[in-house]
Design a protein around this nucleic acid. Sequence first.
DNA 1: ATGAAAGCGCTAACAT
DNA 2: ATGTTAGCGCTTTCAT
Lengths: 333, 333
Amino acid sequence: MAAVSEPGNRKVTRRDVARHAGVSDAVVSYTLNGGPPVAPATAARVRESVRLLGYTPNAAARALRMGSSRLIGIVVPDSRNPFWAELCHAVEILARARGFAVLVVNTDDDSSLTIEYFQSLASRQVDGVLIAASIEESDVARLNAVGVPWALLNKSTPVAGTRGTGVDLVAGARTATDHLIGHGYGRIGFVGRIDDPRYLGWRDTVVGAGLEPGPVFNTTFVREGGYTAGRELAAAHNELDAVFVSSDMLATGVLRALHEAGLGVPGDVAIASFDGSPESEYSWPGLTTVRQPIDELALNAVEQLLDPSYIDNRRIEGNLVVRESCGCHPPIS
Amino acid sequence: MAAVSEPGNRKVTRRDVARHAGVSDAVVSYTLNGGPPVAPATAARVRESVRLLGYTPNAAARALRMGSSRLIGIVVPDSRNPFWAELCHAVEILARARGFAVLVVNTDDDSSLTIEYFQSLASRQVDGVLIAASIEESDVARLNAVGVPWALLNKSTPVAGTRGTGVDLVAGARTATDHLIGHGYGRIGFVGRIDDPRYLGWRDTVVGAGLEPGPVFNTTFVREGGYTAGRELAAAHNELDAVFVSSDMLATGVLRALHEAGLGVPGDVAIASFDGSPESEYSWPGLTTVRQPIDELALNAVEQLLDPSYIDNRRIEGNLVVRESCGCHPPIS
DNA sequence: ATGAAAGCGCTAACAT
DNA sequence: ATGTTAGCGCTTTCAT
């Protein structure tokens, strides 16, 4: 009763289908992939055999023959970060709609691994790779040498000779910091990586406004780091009245630490953050944050990767989403 | 002096390496994969040619020949949910250490897609599939018929004939609910999917304790759903003094709604939740939750998938992590 | 409308 | 220690 393909059976190949339907290998291919026209009756017989035998084409053979695996890779700093998780998810949906599957690789924030992982993806014959990790100018040539198309998923900073749109991190940090300045806060701190463009954006903005930069809490992009920074920040809270935090995930940790310390947000310390991930909306208080347009970034990257003639290398400005953490709105209650 | 492989060049094959090094194809294979011994000098020459030509083996050809792609698939309800994101990440690390890459597929909580995606993964010649989505008894035979090894990543409920460990959802909901009862709360509500085992665990526990079940807020596992449930819950807060929430992600939404409504946690409504994801630790107040041992689940699933002789089908009990939302600890401050 | 056959790049059994 | 060669399952050109 069950289909022929039971566990332990030899894999059903296209040849088996051909024999079963009494046709040649080619006709099965034509029927399935729409080559030269096939007589309706023959096609029906083939399809019936496919069903009966439980045949599924061997993607490895097809990839070898066609030189295309219909696979794309994506290199991401940390897919547990809600922002990257959203981005990966968006890419997957788009890729699937185009018949591609997605290979996700985490560098765990070690961007020196990017090239190595890129190469390993390339050897798997992926048709392209999306890079979300940060890239040096000097990496471009090495990446190009591999011969696999690639695009930046979120080009944070301009890199000559690269494809892909992205949100301008410097401008984003400026937007957030300006907003804080507009509130009248005079001592604005920073939480994030100091080797990140957002650090520059923050610093330039406060200095440009004639303010003295507030304390800097250097941390990598992990929740724990945000929390630790938050504790230090709480201890030093009389040295600042507001802070720009480089990501929502970090801000969540800061918020927790501030709450623990009995400090009010925005009362004691106002916060503006970055990413616009879902957790920024559901935290307490809601985070004022610079939203990255995830769907647009993903669509743009996937299109460029798959269609060489499609070119759009714009740097997008993130949108400020105003919630309660900056002091604009009182917490609804 | 870039390597020979520049964009546009024909792909470098193993044959090119063989010619360049003045040896046969086989020797290249032996050198790279450790077959029969190769003279040290020859091996060195081969390796040099590999480097010079920028050769990377074609994984599709290897997969076709070997019948193994060194790829595993993972079917997950929603990789944006921090719990699944953690699990996927853990699986990726383990898989990479074993030379496997991971194909992530989201069902977006539509478990009827599981089989379809499983088959598409199978046609890509994956060496195994980890299934995190829920499975019906009736799916088992169909899954087995495909002939690709699979294991449950988080076997939430016992399903005959399946492999993989998992946390007992019913017992977990019981643990959380019992803890709430232990606090003396007499009217305990529920937030989650009512077709989920946790609903049963909650209901049995309150009824078993001689309590009348509190209000039920039915929702799928999305943040927005938690928030909506939270608003309804806030409106009905005089009908309950505590609530069991089926996941941390949902609980985050509930917390937000409660804060908005000016209700205190645990003062007005105590909460116990499920998953033990990072956001439960950094929310405010911290969530008392039943932690799923992510690394253990992932390790177990990967091992079983890759090693047919390894069998461990235990149902694990989740550990209660006590924080502030249940009323055990006052918020630190 | 259908069939025969070459060849994608690799591994491994079998020569030498 | 090294070389030769037969396929893995597929697509596609060229015949018929």
